[in-house]
Structures are given as structure tokens and as C-alpha cells.
């Protein structure tokens, strides 16, 4: 056990699974870097260095730099998965899914059902998501609600380095297609991560804080923000449960409902665009299954329904932060039933 960054945790997960299983291969744009170029091989190790060093150990047979050709290589990853490999394909920015969505949602996601249960597609697609990187509208989206919408896909949102390693190893060993989304501003965040391989099961939410007053459901990087708000609120006498679902497909609806039953108040923090996102999904779930437990209306802390802006001051306004979470918790705490009238 030692302190490792989110980036290192992911790298280590890939390395350990590639050592364990020769069927695990990596493919993606510049995941080694320098293919065919006169200079350094492994020049990049991924655009943000996540796969650095792997080509040195496993060679270009198993660490495949692809052309900028997402339709072909994501589709190839699906085909390879259906025929005996365990590809981990990197899509770089999840925003690029627009040019390979068919391969993911019409092909990989549907093989098993369309083929009557006779297919296995152990495919992992890794991609970066999220704002805060000053990368503007085409490199900053969350998009996990899109994948969550598709039956046949599993969708993973690791909220920290420890979570990232265990969830990625689980993703690679999983026999279904998994979309593994990494928050690009978290790569340097460190925490204790075991050196050994370990797995975190899908569909089991993690309660990062436990409290009596309000349940905060938060996704991916928003877990950290929710924790920060919860810690501040605790000093002011409001105790919050913070629930990190870890995976949004499958979603641990049982734990969400249990927590809402216990606290009676719900705030959801979702960095994805506000229409048809995870916040609306969880709201609908709770409204339908635990309406009687609610002491106040559900509050959603989400960005506005606009593309992610470029100017730093605008982007900072866009992304939910601990202040907004804190305000939302106060609002549900201060709610009086007569306000409904």
C-alpha cells in the first residue's frame, strides 16, 4: 500500500491485468505514441500519460497505437472482444464518441441480446470526461447518461485513485462491454492504493460519509465536492450521507433508497448536462419508490443546459462546486411544508 495518483492507479491496473491475462490488449490513439516515427517510442503513453511504459513491457503487439479512426478501432475492439480478446480501447476524450457511437451502442452493446445470449463481449472503453480542464465544448462533456441509457453497456465512474484501480480491474475481467470514464482533472490526485490487484464489484454504492439529515448522491468527481460540502456542513450541525454509486449502470438503487429512507432529504450532484442526466434519473427513482420518506423536495445540483464554455471564469461558473452543494443542502434542511402552497 502506498500513495498513488489516479493516473498511476489506472496504469497499474492495466499492467497487472495484462500480466495476468495474455488476451488483454490495449488500443487507442497515441497510447504508446511515436508509432512509425523516427524519435522516441512510448513518446506519449496516452495523451495524458496514463498508459506510459506499457508498450515497453508488452510490446506493440499488445499496445496498439491506432490511426485517428475511432469508428474502425472501436468497432475492431468490439469484434476482437466477441472473438476471444479482452481489448481495452481508449477513446481519449469521451466527446469523440460521436464518431463511433454505432460501434458501441448498436454493435457491442447489443450482441448478447440479439444473438440470444450466445455472445460475450468483454470490451472496456476508457475515456476522459468532465469539465475544469479549460478544454471547451468538445473536450469537456460528461456524456455518461448517454451510455447509461443503452441496455447492454455498463458504465463506471471512479471517484478516486483507489476506486479507479479496483473498478478498472473489475471492468477488464467483466464479460460485458464496460464504459470506464476517467475524470481528467483528477489524474494527479493521490491516495493509498494497494500494490496488489483487487476488484471492486459493480452496482455497490460506497457511502463516503454517513449522516442523519440529508443524503447527497454524487457522481465521479462530484463525490469529492460533495464530501467537502458534507464536512463543512457537519461543523455547522448538519450531517450528510454522501453516496458514490461507483457505477451508474448497474445502479445501486437499493442503497440510494435506503439512504433516502433514513435521511428523508435528497440532494443529487451531477456534472452532466441537466436534462435526462443521472440526477433526473435518481430523482425519478426516489419520487416513485420513496416519495413517502421525503421531508423536502429533491434538489439537483447540475450545470446549466449550455455547452461547456471556454473562458475560465465561465467554466468555473458552469461546474457544480461545494458552495452550491452546501446551499442545496441548506435549502432542503430549511424547507417547510407550507412553502409548497
Amino acid at each position: 500500500m502506498s500513495k498513488k495518483s489516479y493516473r498511476t492507479a489506472i496504469n497499474e491496473a492495466l499492467r497487472q491485468e495484462m500480466r495476468r491475462d495474455p488476451a488483454v490488449i490495449l488500443m487507442g490513439e497515441d497510447i504508446a505514441g511515436g508509432a512509425g516515427a523516427p524519435g522516441e517510442q512510448d513518446a506519449w503513453g496516452g495523451v495524458l500519460g496514463v498508459t506510459k511504459g506499457l508498450v515497453g513491457e508488452f510490446g506493440r503487439e499488445r499496445v496498439l497505437d491506432t490511426p485517428l479512426s475511432e469508428s474502425a478501432y472501436i468497432g475492431a475492439a468490439a469484434g476482437a472482444a466477441a472473438t476471444g480478446l479482452r481489448p481495452v480501447a481508449e477513446l481519449m476524450f469521451v466527446d469523440f464518441v460521436g464518431v463511433c457511437f454505432d460501434q458501441i451502442f448498436n454493435q457491442a452493446a447489443k450482441f448478447r441480446y440479439m444473438f440470444g445470449g450466445n455472445a460475450r463481449t468483454p470490451l472496456v472503453i476508457r475515456a476522459m470526461y468532465g469539465a475544469g480542464f479549460r478544454a471547451a465544448s468538445q473536450h469537456s462533456q460528461c456524456l455518461y447518461p448517454l451510455f447509461t441509457h443503452i441496455p447492454g453497456l455498463k458504465v463506471v465512474l471512479p471517484s478516486s485513485a483507489y476506486e479507479a484501480k479496483g473498478l478498472l480491474i473489475q471492468s477488464i475481467r467483466d464479460d460485458d462491454p464496460v464504459i470506464f470514464l476517467e475524470n481528467k482533472v483528477q489524474y494527479d490526485e493521490e491516495e493509498d492504493v494497494p500494490d496488489e490487484a483487487y476488484t471492486i464489484p459493480f452496482g455497490e454504492a460506497n457511502l463516503t460519509r454517513e449522516g442523519r439529515d440529508v443524503t447527497i448522491v454524487a457522481f465521479g468527481r462530484m463525490v469529492k465536492i460533495a464530501n467537502e460540502a458534507a464536512d463543512r456542513l457537519l461543523k455547522q450541525g448538519i450531517s450528510c450521507t454522501v453516496l458514490d454509486p461507483r457505477t451508474v449502470s448497474p445502479l445501486d438503487t437499493g442503497t440510494i433508497l435506503d439512504c433516502v429512507q433514513e435521511t428523508g432529504r435528497l440532494v443529487i450532484v451531477d456534472e452532466a448536462s441537466p436534462r435526462c442526466n443521472m440526477a433526473t434519473d435518481v430523482s425519478a427513482l426516489v419520487a416513485q419508490e420513496a416519495f413517502g420518506a421525503l421531508k423536502a423536495p429533491i434538489r439537483m445540483v447540475c450545470p446549466p443546459h449550455v455547452p461547456v464554455p471556454f473562458a475560465p471564469n465561465l467554466e468555473d461558473l458552469y461546474v457544480p462546486n461545494a458552495d452550491r452543494v452546501e446551499a442545496a443542502v441548506r435549502a432542503v434542511m430549511g424547507f417547510k411544508a407550507r412553502e409548497l402552497a
Binding site: E61, A77, G79, A80, T83, L85, Q107
Partner: peptide
């Protein structure tokens, strides 16, 4: 839909 999948199947055979 098929050609990318076939690249993958061929990659499996090769790997």
C-alpha cells in the same frame, strides 16, 4: 457495421 468488427476478429486471429 461489419467491416470494423472483422478488423477486430482478424486482430484476434493475429494476436
Amino acid at each position: 457495421g461489419g467491416p470494423p468488427l472483422i478488423c477486430g476478429a482478424a486482430l484476434t486471429a493475429k494476436t
